[in-house]
């Protein structure tokens, strides 16, 4: 190995383990060159070996940690809770149409609150005109004096009958919403109003009176008054 070659290799790696390089180190001059190169590498290494930021290892480990046994169970528990919540929510949503219908009835009652205090007397022809649109006939004498009747649009945009007549304790409101059925009777009410909502014909009927009104008795009257055997519904 000539001097030029030795110097080059010595600069690249003063600790070269190649046998030719090692045997060249028997020469004092070469050994001195090797020591100089090793010294330079040492200085360079010292300059580059700067300290790492404090806590670096901890931060890396904290960011990449295997979840503990407890944490894994917590994760499973969270998944289970989420499943239960989903199921409960699903069931609630399944039951929701009935609740929504009763809410809708109360909402409409409050929206048209003024008609409950009407003292108008609706003629039988007017009543017939409205109820016939829904395929029914109403024997008004069976319920009492009718103070209001309209074919109203409810919150779900479905048209139905809105009727008010004089009950025993005050105005009684009847709603009939066609083509939307509930599966059983429910009590409804808000503030001074109480009533029931129940399946009737091909839809749902609601009867609401003031507190103290005998709603069951009114239900019997209303059901007897409505006759659905006549012409098929036009609604």
């Amino acid at each position: 190995m000539n001097e030029l070659e030795f110097r080059k290799r010595c600069i690249i790696n003063p600790d070269d383990s190649d046998p030719d390089f090692q045997s060249a180190l028997e020469n004092d001059d070469y050994r001195r060159v090797q020591a100089e190169c090793a010294d330079f590498d040492e200085k360079l290494s010292g300059a580059l070996r700067v300290p790492a930021p404090e806590g670096l290892q901890d931060r890396i480990l904290a960011a990449n940690r295997q979840p503990s046994f407890l944490a894994r169970w917590k994760k499973k528990l969270a998944a289970l809770t989420s499943l239960i919540v989903t199921l409960v929510l699903g069931l609630t949503l399944l039951l929701r149409p009935q609740l929504a219908l009763s809410d809708m009835v109360i909402e409409h009652l409050y929206h048209d609150m003024a008609v409950m205090y009407s003292r108008d007397v609706i003629r039988e022809e007017q009543v017939d005109e409205i109820v016939s649109h829904f395929g029914a006939d109403l024997e008004s004498s069976l319920v009492g004096i009718i103070r209001f009747i309209e074919d109203c649009r409810f919150a779900d945009q479905r048209k139905g009958i809105h009727l008010v007549y004089d009950g025993q304790s005050g105005p009684v409101t009847v709603f009939y919403i066609p083509h939307r059925q509930i599966d059983r009777m429910q009590a409804i009410g808000k503030e001074e109003f109480q009533g029931i909502i129940f399946p009737h014909h091909d839809g749902t009927m609601a009867i609401v009176g003031v507190i103290g009104e005998d709603i069951n008795s009114q239900k019997s009257k209303v059901e007897a008054a409505f006759n659905w055997d006549q012409a098929s519904g036009k609604s």
Partner: peptide, 10 residues
């Protein structure tokens, strides 16, 4: 991490 994080940082 213990062996190499410092040198990796450098």
């Amino acid at each position: 991490v213990q062996r190499y994080s410092t040198d990796m940082f450098r």
